[in-house]
Write a protein that binds this DNA or RNA. Structure first.
Length: 593
RNA sequence: GCGGGUGUAGCUCAGCGGUUUAGAGCGCCGGCCUGUCACGCCGGAGGCCGCGGGUUCAAAUCCCGUCAUCCGCGCCA
């Protein structure tokens, strides 16, 4: 007997189908055997519908258990009014079963699939080990469907804008700058390795030399670095590159694409999100000054304030010394924080210390002119008024201040601002607040290595007007480099690239990459640029992170079908795994132990 | 590499200022039940308390180590 194939899907059945003879395929989501009558909620990807079985007709009905895969024939019936279930989409009807076939019996499950409340706490490694079960949950299916729609709409939008998708190699060349590479041994010449791409960066620039002009790719990228809640060893980016453009062109195209696509997905799935609006723009310097970081969460204000001048002549030695030695006094306002207990303020200070603060000075505005807190005795009434003006503090607020070098103070206050925003519930969960951060510095000083290192990558174009600082003050050179930030998370990063070999040579020199290294690592691309390279630039938005933002998930694993756990291990496939002796031999490898 | 959390029944958790037989809910097995929709009722099985060592008359509980996992720092051009 062949497969009894469905004529309807579970989730589509309504009162108007009453009387229809139907065949359904799906899984037993819940089973309720009352003795004289048995109910089964049958689930397929469209939803649930209730089956009714007459026990006398089905003596083997006990074989229908949770997650048994079934083919069912039956007749749709409108339920009696008092037995309708308004909580179910299909709750007005039920299917009276005339026959069924068990397509696939199921063992007892390792965790319950029919209780989303309990599922939120199930061990992640267990969920991932049994991902094929985990993905049966409607909430997981929905996330994958949202991701699919996101990717499809991106592809459509990009093609409409004249881009073509080009696949670039997964097995390619190691580039030791930046993240650690995943390496693949080369069988024919032991000791040589391919690498998996950290991004298709060099290929897409070669495609510009190749005259493709508008390239994109839904690209898998690989980085062998330690994970976070929003970082996996392999992830997906919309990689794109354009020729004959300036920074503004890339910004316009990217913003238009993201807004169109995200708003369409929000509409299609009825997501709990307000439409994405025009992106704000901040320079890197502004962002650092106002928010202490290059990825500000703009869902709330609480901009940092700078009280260095106010405390330059302070009686408070710590502050005065900090300013005298070139540091800063910066702070953030904690709305309503004046009411915090001594212990709670201590916890805030502890929090600040974790990120490098030497201490946390606090000043509570109990009322208009009544200040308390760790530095209150050094703050005159005039100073208090000045601070109130600087910080925007109102009665009941607490000011948290840090004296340190600019970078450390910013880092501490960046984290503290987010913490305060969280505690005060200032984030609107419906909001996807996008912004551009532009004008990043080209290079930053790597104290450990004792040299300049690229903020983005070595092909990033410096702003022409800043090239005058190349020899005198490289840290002052700004780049045509830009990030998309949403709700405090970096969503995309891009730049205009260097297409002139003379400028590229000067940048390599600045970065301390000598002639030989240039040839070994980048010879192919440098030569390519000598054959009429067009000006070009691009960007790469992270698909996983966009999917996270849309689905309100805190963890990247929730939007990836088959993720790895924290140490890069895959409990489902049991990878990485050992390989047999012959494979070692073929690759000319042995363990040095 | 570092810091913090967690690890007890198939799942989620309680117990952890040492003590007799380690508990609950869900699930599972058996029985009853004709309108449930987290069905209900009765009964039952199920535990190297992550692993190793130590302290103690006595350890799930205290100490040390170790492994796994989660979150974060470093790292992620």
């Amino acid at each position: 007997m062949g497969l009894l194939q469905r004529t309807k899907v579970c989730g589509e059945l309504r009162s108007c189908n009453a009387g229809d003879e139907v065949v359904l395929n799906g899984w037993a989501h819940r089973v309720r055997d009352l003795g004289g009558v048995m109910f089964v909620d049958l689930r397929d990807r469209s939803g649930l519908v209730q089956l009714v079985l007459d026990p006398s007709a089905f003596p083997n009905r006990a074989e229908i258990r949770s997650e048994t895969c079934l083919a069912v024939t039956g007749k749709v019936r409108e339920r009696a009014e008092e037995t309708k279930n308004p909580k179910m989409e299909t709750g007005d009807v039920e299917v009276v079963v005339t026959g069924y076939t068990v397509l696939g019996p199921s063992k007892t499950l390792p965790f319950p699939l029919n209780d989303e409340d309990q599922m939120v706490n199930v061990n992640e490694d267990l969920r991932i080990k049994y991902r094929y079960l985990d993905l049966r949950r409607p909430s997981m299916y929905r996330r994958l469907a949202i991701r699919s729609s996101l990717i499809n709409r991106i592809r459509r939008h990009m093609e409409e804008q004249g881009f073509i998708e080009v696949e670039t190699p997964i097995i390619t060349k190691s580039t030791p700058e930046g993240a650690r590479d995943y390496l693949v041994p080369y069988r024919l010449e032991p000791g040589k390795f391919y690498a998996l791409p950290q991004s298709p960066q060099q290929y897409k620039q070669l495609l510009m030399v190749a005259g493709i002009e508008r390239y994109f790719q839904i690209a898998k990228c690989f980085r062998d670095e330690s994970q976070r809640a929003d970082r996996q060893p392999e992830f997906t980016q919309l990689d794109l590159e354009m020729s004959f453009v300036v920074q503004e062109d890339v910004l316009q195209l990217t913003e238009g694409m993201l807004r169109d696509v995200l708003n369409a997905v929000i509409g299609q799935f009825g997501l709990d999100k307000d439409p994405v609006e025009t992106f704000e723009r901040l320079t890197f310097d502004e962002s650092m000054h106002l928010y202490g970081c290059d990825k500000p969460d703009l869902r709330f204000g609480l901009q940092l304030f700078d009280a260095s001048d106010a405390f330059a002549d302070s009686e408070f030695g710590v502050f005065r010394n900090a300013v005298e030695s070139g540091g800063v006094i910066r702070g953030v306002r904690y709305p309503g924080g004046a009411g915090l207990s001594r212990k709670e303020v201590g916890q805030l200070e502890e929090f600040a210390r974790e990120f490098g603060a030497k201490g946390l000075a606090t000043l509570a505005f109990e009322s208009e002119n009544d200040v308390k807190g760790s530095i209150a005795k050094f703050v005159s009434a005039d100073k208090a008024a000045e601070l109130r003006k600087l910080s925007g503090a109102e009665p009941g607020d607490l000011l948290c201040m840090v004296a340190d070098d600019y970078a450390t103070a910013n880092n501490v206050l960046y984290r503290l601002r987010l913490e305060i925003g969280e505690r005060c519930g200032l984030r609107n969960p419906r909001e996807l607040k996008f912004c551009w951060v532009v004008d990043f510095p080209l290079v930053e000083w790597d104290a450990e290595a004792g040299r300049w290192s690229p903020t983005h990558h070595p092909f990033t174009s410096p702003k022409e007007e800043d090239l005058v600082y190349l020899d005198s003050d490289p840290g002052r050179i700004r780049a045509d480099c830009y990030d998309v930030v949403c709700n405090g998370t970096e969503m995309a990063s891009g730049s205009i690239r260097i297409h002139r070999t003379d400028i590229q040579a000067r940048i390599f020199k600045l970065l301390g990459i000598d002639e030989k290294t240039q040839q070994d690592r980048f010879g192919h691309i440098l030569e390519a640029f000598s054959f009429g390279a067009p000006p070009h630039g691009g960007i790469a938005p992270g698909i996983d992170r966009l999917a996270m933002a849309l689905t309100d998930t805190e963890n990247i694993r929730e939007v990836i079908a088959f993720p790895k756990v924290g140490n890069g291990y895959d409990p489902l496939m049991d990878a990485p795994s050992t390989v047999d002796a012959q494979q070692w031999a073929e690759l000319g490898l042995r363990l040095s132990k």
